[in-house]
């Protein structure tokens, strides 16, 4: 299936960009006429994915984060968050609820939130090369036909 629309943003791994990224994703999603709940789910999942890049992928340096947003004809929104950071040695472990290497101010619930707020979450990571997180969420059509 070919996307009907696509946007791509690149930004630095500064924590101020967490708000930028989730707001940009919400603006892109707006063309699907989503409910407030659907927009909030998208914002929350994007916030988690981008925070992971900032906290874990680039722990002691700034790096680039790519946010790619795609819209498909079946009303599916696909969000790809990609970094070129340290990578995740064990993805299954990283996805386990409450598991975190982030210290006392992180909850270890980032992937759990992404999984409960999105229809699908895919994580591909190579240590030393980076991580790509793909989030998919189908937005209900409010006015069918």
């Amino acid at each position: 299936m070919k996307p009907v629309n696509e946007a791509k943003l690149t930004f630095w791994s500064r924590s101020a960009n967490e708000g930028f990224a989730r707001t940009a994703a919400a603006c892109f999603a707006a063309q699907l006429d989503p409910t407030l709940d659907e927009v909030n789910d998208v914002k929350t999942a994007v916030s988690e994915a981008v925070t992971n890049c900032i906290v874990h992928a680039y722990p002691d340096q700034l790096g680039l984060i790519v946010l790619r947003l795609r819209l498909y004809p079946d009303n599916t929104l696909e969000i790809v968050v990609k970094d070129s950071g340290v990578g995740i040695p064990d993805v299954d472990q990283a996805r386990t609820p409450l598991w975190s290497t982030g210290g006392a101010d992180r909850s270890g619930m980032g992937f759990t939130i992404m999984e409960s707020f999105m229809d699908a979450v895919k994580v591909r990571s190579r240590p030393g090369k980076g991580t790509t997180v793909t989030l998919r969420r189908r937005i209900a059509r409010r006015f069918p036909g």
């Binding site: 929350t44 916030s47 988690e48 925070t51 101010d105 992180r106 909850s107 619930m109 759990t112 939130i113």
Partner: peptide
């Protein structure tokens, strides 16, 4: 707005 950072705040 709140993400999992808020969970950590409440739990702390």
């Amino acid at each position: 707005f709140m993400d999992s950072s808020g969970i950590a705040l409440v739990l702390r």
